[in-house]
Amino acid sequence: MSEAKTALPGALFDGIAVIEEAGLQGMITLRGDLGDKALASALHDVTGCALPGPREVALAGEKGAAWMSPDELLVMVPHGETAAAVATLDARLGERHALAADVSDARVVFDIRGAYAREVLGKLMPVDFSADAFGPGQIRRSRMAQVPAAVWMTGEDAFRVVCFRSVAQYVFDLLKTAASEGGEVGLYA
């Protein structure tokens, strides 16, 4: 077994917000009928989380589940537990028309923290990141400059961004630029 490595190990930038690569995260795409109780129960087995509603994310420590589309969830588990979680989901879903696929190595995760975190994201995505419009428990899939990205909150002034691994450097550079010293706009202040 080869050693798993993230796209940009240790990447860190400290500007008007802190940008940090979050490290290894087990991620499973789970597609199927989200109205099926067996799917919700399998999800609970694997993550301890209840099925998130539309545009919601449920988090429990290193585990969680995000609503990606009407028939898709992003299931999060510790990286080392991914294969076991996929096996559990496969077994629990049996012959149902459903799919559980390990996509951990296809993604990169960044954490954005600080008083200007909302603003850093607001510069890059066509999304209203004011506290009234976006808060904990929500997930927003959209575009970050030229690539798709998903974002949710992990705490006060703390956001997590997931995007494709192939654009990891691009996204880190975008975030660094948006978080450069002197780049405060004050829109969400």
Binding site: S69, P126, R140, S142, R143
Partner: peptide, 11 residues
């Protein structure tokens, strides 16, 4: 109408 997101055209 599928996910309920209101977004700008480029999304």
């Amino acid at each position: 109408p599928c996910c309920g997101v209101k977004g700008e055209e480029t999304e």
